[in-house]
Write a protein that binds this DNA or RNA. Sequence first.
DNA 1: AACTTGACAGCAG
DNA 2: GCTGCTGCCAAGT
Length: 110
Amino acid sequence: MAAQQHTVTATPFQQAVWEAIRQIPTGRVTTYGDIAAYLGTKAVRAVGTAAGRNPNAPQVPCHRVVCADGKIGKYSGPGAVKRKKELLSHEGVEIAGGKIVDFETLRYRF
DNA sequence: AACTTGACAGCAG
DNA sequence: GCTGCTGCCAAGT
C-alpha cells in the first residue's frame, strides 16, 4: 500500500506549460501569451508563474520565453536577466537595449 | 475557505 | 514613448 509519496506532483497546468516551452527549438523564442493561447487560456500570469517554478531547468528552456513586446522579461537566479540575455545571444538570438532584434522573425509559433 | 502574490498583456493618461 | 491601472488564472500562505 503505497502511502502517498512525497512526489511533488505538479498540476496538469504546470506540466502543460513546461511541455509547451520544451517545444521551442534553439535560436527561437516565444511569448507567455502565445503559450497561454496554446494551452487555451488567458492566464499569462499563471504561465509565467509556472515557468518560474520549473524544476526541469535544462530540459525546459524557459529562457526562450519572453514578453510580447520582445522584451526579455525575467529569469531566476542571481543576475537572472543578464544570464537570460547571454543564453539567448549564445543561441543566435541577438539582443539590443534589452529587447530582441527581429523578434517577430525569431518568434516561434506552435 | 479567503486573500495576496506573480518569470504578463493590453489600454488609458 | 513611458508610467500606471486593470484583467486574466493559478498557486501559495
